[in-house]
């Protein structure tokens, strides 16, 4: 079983978040819908992921894209390239093999991977399309068709999905399909990741460090003297990247709640998302819970 749907019901960044947070390995087939829906013009993209990392993209209209790009650049003699294509072990990314054999430099491999990444950025701009994500099984194959990782199209480089998604969202100009997802101005942010090991912009860093649920996006925008809409969009990108989550703002005074000894303690001690209890709830007796369980088991 996989995840199947359309961009109308689930967006690419949300899908990326699931693949990343679930550390999934597999193939995401994505078919953009053209207005004319011309079958001759139908391109399908295959994005491959390994343990939550993006590893390659294949465009159905561009056969042997990796080899074609190397030939375009004339980095390797055509005959040598073809020969090495057959010599490359079936479980090794072609880019890694060429690098190990001193046929490709690290900079060239990096350039090839950047070309693939830029194709992913373009996909994030597509408004309408269908997708199907299928996981790799224990034998390293897609169960439905037995396909394995496309090593001939792999550079051997990988990119963390969080980083990829965040960068793709930064490149977005049309946000119309995310209108319902944009966090409201009165909402705050709360860190949900333990930390980050990817590059963040100055605004993203500011949002990260302010994400303790005590300040609204509106106030943050005023403080930082940033356009509110820009801030809200950045917040959504960080939500999709799994770094923060939107939260109802609780004032600093409310962040101190009484414990049983009457002491005040911070509600976010240890950085955990401890709930703010506005009032003590009545405790249910053991007898009530026990009777309730018995009633539900015996009467339905």
């Amino acid at each position: 079983m996989g995840i199947r749907g359309s961009l109308e019901t689930f967006s690419l960044p949300e899908l990326f978040q699931i693949i990343g947070s679930g550390q999934k390995s597999g193939r995401l087939r994505f078919t953009p819908h053209t207005k004319l829906d011309d079958p001759q013009n139908k391109t399908t993209f295959e994005l491959w992921f390994k343990r939550g990392f993006f590893v390659t993209i294949i465009n159905s209209n561009q056969y042997q894209d990796l080899i074609a790009k190397i030939q375009e650049k004339a980095w390797i003699d055509a005959m040598v390239l073809v020969k090495n294509k057959y010599l490359c072990p079936a479980d090794k990314p072609f880019g890694t093999y060429l690098k190990e054999n001193n046929l490709l430099t690290e900079a060239q491999r990096e350039w090839l991977f950047d070309q693939q990444i830029s194709q992913v950025y373009k996909l994030f701009k597509i408004k309408d399309g269908s997708f199907n994500f299928e996981e790799i099984d224990q034998s390293n194959k897609i169960a439905s068709d037995g396909e394995g990782f496309p090593v001939r199209e792999m550079t051997g480089k990988k990119r963390k999905i969080t980083e990829l998604s965040l960068a793709a969202m930064r490149n977005l100009s049309d946000w119309s399909r995310f209108v319902e997802d944009i966090p409201r101005a009165e909402m705050g942010l709360q860190q949900v990741a333990k930390g980050y090991d990817i590059h963040l912009t100055s605004l993203e860093k500011h949002l990260w460090s302010s994400a303790n649920g005590s300040i609204s996006l509106k106030k943050l925008a005023q403080q930082k003297e940033v356009d509110l809409q820009t801030l809200q969009r950045t917040a959504l990108s960080m939500i999709f990247a799994g770094l923060v989550e939107e939260m109802t703002v609780v004032s600093p005074a409310e962040q101190f709640i009484s414990n049983s000894s009457g002491e005040l303690r911070p509600a976010f001690a240890n950085g955990s998302n401890t709930a703010i209890k506005s009032k003590a709830k009545p405790k249910a007796s053991k007898s009530l819970i026990s009777n309730l369980v018995s009633f539900l088991k015996d009467n339905f």
């Binding site: 949300e14 609780v250 703010i276």
Partner: peptide, 17 residues
Amino acid sequence: FRGAKRILNFMNRKGDI
């Protein structure tokens, strides 16, 4: 699902139950 997550965040913030 995002809406459900929003409700979840709200509830967990308001009541540790």
